[in-house]
Design a protein around this nucleic acid. Structure first.
Lengths: 250, 250
DNA sequence: CACGGTATTGACGCGATTCTGACGACGCGC
DNA sequence: GCGCGTCGTCAGAATCGCGTCAATACCGTG
């Protein structure tokens, strides 16, 4: 085994997304130098990114189409294609963030790559910390655009919840909910299918100081059911798990 | 430094937006070194950007709130505030792209700035061409999110809002609105159908420092309704969601 | 300096929302 | 069968938020 690049910088580096409960982020690394690829793959995998690698432009375009990465790290000195061509090939159909790597310091090339559609440009040799930070920035930036106004609709057979617009529609008419009712519904819907403990619900909606006032839950759960369930006495979507908590089922 | 600090309209350089018929892009330059500011302002104005400048962090935050720039160029070595503080102050209420300038090459500082919410990091001395390219990249990136998917004309049964012309027409006659009224209407209309929280409204219209002065909202919502609603006492388009915010419905 | 228009406050009444306690129903273990 | 704990329901009381009005401060213009 060749000498690995141990670039793990200890705890000094803040990593906002935590790395633990972050939704999986897929990275496509495009470089023809094996040692660079290896270093990147090791570092990225260590930080729980899903990593694909491509050694040339053709493979890169193919993998990008097949795997739909969340961000692409692209070296410009590829054997088969000009870097700008790769970028344009990608930009023809996707807005995925592209971070360009290059050994050349020349300003012209930076301008060309950026204007071709790249999002960022890092010159080699680069600090792994910096690249990772730029990668985080690129991913963070694309989050709202990527899925900001989609997948916020949750439907059941009797009503529809729009988390973005904060609207509930039932039989074609909007249902008015009070702030507390909304908050409660939101927490439940965000954990669709999973059990949410009473303590967790109370602390989410009423604040960390509340953990035992289960009567609040009973009152507001009843109001939610009255407003949303077809038969409030026999709820089908807001399920009580006695002694444990509540569960929302679509 | 590779580039001169002179405006070079090089024909070879692709300028996607054309430069002439591009919608006006507002840039906020934050730096305490007058010569840097001057160079940037000259170059940006030559390319038809609208430019504001601030010499320190406090002014920057204030101007950002007042002028709503499309992109911010931020020097880290400000006299009054730490750079990361400025970034966080901005990120508290806006996603405007931030390009950080700094004389320090240190990787730590780059990581810190990027993780605080910056979009890009350029070290001084920098090539003007490169900075402009990164600026174009930042603006291009934010276009779809910024105002890509919203209509310029919004119609209701009693009035029409033209966001581009900044005009409201009711019963064939234009309605006069004060700047604050416009700003409020604009924010609401840009989120047509969606609920906008009072905090968000306050921070968008009055600035990031305002988050609790809900009486402002009450006063100006009343004025909007009086000017635009058929029956101000029973609004059909400017809906109050008690305890949560307001919603514009067509 | 006076003036008109605009923005910022403060005060008040009313309706809606939240809190709270009481009661009965149900399931479960003994 | 009985006691116990948990849940659902209800209604009154306390609180909060909103719309409204009016007074004051601000600011550029003539």
């Amino acid at each position: 085994m060749s000498g690995r690049l141990m670039t793990r910088k200890a705890g000094s580096m803040p990593q906002p997304s935590g790395g633990q409960t972050r939704p999986p982020v897929r990275v496509l690394v495009v470089d023809d130098e094996p040692q660079i690829v290896r270093a990147l793959v090791i570092n990225l995998r260590a930080r729980k990114y899903e990593v694909d690698a491509a050694p040339d432009g053709a493979t890169a375009l193919q993998l990008a189409a097949a795997r739909h990465p969340d961000v692409i790290v692209l070296d410009l000195g590829l054997p088969d294609m000009d870097g700008a061509e790769v970028i344009k090939g990608l930009r023809g159909w996707t807005r995925v963030p592209i971070i360009v790597l290059s050994a050349r310091q020349a300003s012209d090339e930076k301008v060309e790559a950026l204007d071709a559609g790249a999002d960022d440009y890092v010159t080699k040799p680069f600090g792994m910390d910096e690249l990772l930070a730029r990668l985080r920035a690129a991913v963070r930036r694309s989050q709202p655009t990527g899925d900001g106004d989609e997948a916020v609709l949750v439907e059941t057979d009797s009503f529809t919840v729009d988390l973005a617009a904060k609207k509930v529609n039932r039989d074609g008419v909007d249902v008015r909910l009070t702030p507390t009712e909304w908050h409660l519904l939101e927490v439940l819907v965000r954990s669709t299918g999973r059990l949410v403990s009473q303590k967790q619900l109370l602390q989410e909606v009423w604040g960390p100081a509340y953990g035992t006032e289960t009567n609040y839950l009973r009152v507001y759960m009843a109001q939610l059911r009255r407003k949303l369930e077809a038969d409030p006495a026999h709820p089908k979507h807001f399920i009580t798990e006695p002694g444990m908590g509540y569960r929302f089922e679509p």
